[in-house]
């Protein structure tokens, strides 16, 4: 009888181990300029502690998680949602911090403004710069221009995106009321979102 019970216990343990191992997968992260990461289940918000080491974890298959990261000095904190069955490794690349982007803008603003006024001379005649900012690694510029004249049916504020390529700034969008990812597929969506939110 004891042997039968022992056999049953072994069977249950083996099945349990198989279920555990096969229902999980190793998720690895490619990290650069990151101090620490934290993973939470997207639906429940429960913190995951099954880290194998600093850059991989043993997670339930086909489940959505959120990885939050803290950047090293000069880099921003951020987060990314991923599915544990996505292609590995999951790249975590923090952008520059707000402070670093502000200092880069201060250094680059004249060059950017000159490039915009050279490409779009009419813009500064009719519009004045209201808001601006650098994004990501200081290589994307977004700005909002307000109409200088009186109110009319086309006195909308306009948004523009510029990009730094090989050290030179160049507008990559027309001045638009609203920027969309269909007309500008080469501009990252988060850059368009920031431009529209100015």
């Amino acid at each position: 009888m004891k042997r039968v019970i022992a056999l049953l216990v072994i069977i249950i343990l083996v099945i349990g181990a198989v279920v555990f191992v096969f229902s999980r997968t190793i998720v690895s992260f490619e990290q650069k300029n990151i101090k620490s990461i934290e993973i939470t289940e997207l639906d429940s918000g429960k913190k995951v502690s099954s880290f194998l080491n600093d850059s991989s974890a043993f997670l339930v298959k086909n489940t959505k998680y959120k990885v939050s990261y803290v950047g090293i000095d000069g880099y921003a904190n951020g987060s990314r949602v991923f599915n544990s069955s996505d292609e590995m490794p999951i790249k975590l690349v923090p952008y520059f911090s707000k402070e670093k982007l502000l200092s880069l803008l201060a250094a680059d603003s004249n060059t950017i403004h000159n490039s915009i006024s050279r490409t779009l001379p009419d813009l500064l005649t009719n519009f004045s710069l209201a808001k601006e900012g650098l994004l990501q690694f200081g290589d994307w510029y977004v700005a909002l221009y307000r109409y200088k004249g009186g109110y009319n049916l086309s006195s909308d504020s306009l948004r523009i995106v510029a990009k730094k390529v090989e050290g030179k700034w160049k507008p990559v969008s027309s001045p638009e009321i609203f920027l969309n990812s269909v007309s500008y597929p080469n501009i990252p969506k988060d850059v368009l979102e920031k431009a529209n939110a100015l």
């Binding site: 490409t119 779009l120 009419d122 813009l123 009719n126 519009f127 109409y147 049916l153 086309s154 909308d156 306009l158 507008p171 969008s173 027309s174 001045p175 009321i177 609203f178 920027l179 969309n180 990812s181 269909v182 007309s183 969506k189 368009l192 979102e193 529209n196």
Partner: peptide, 28 residues
């Protein structure tokens, strides 16, 4: 644009045209 977002449709995913708007400036 805000109404579309409020309905759960982000207009950033669509080309949006404004036929009544006369652009004062265009990028080449």
């Amino acid at each position: 644009l805000q109404w579309l977002k409020d309905q759960g449709y982000d207009p950033i995913n669509y080309r949006v045209t404004f036929p009544d708007y006369s652009p004062l400036v265009r990028l080449g």
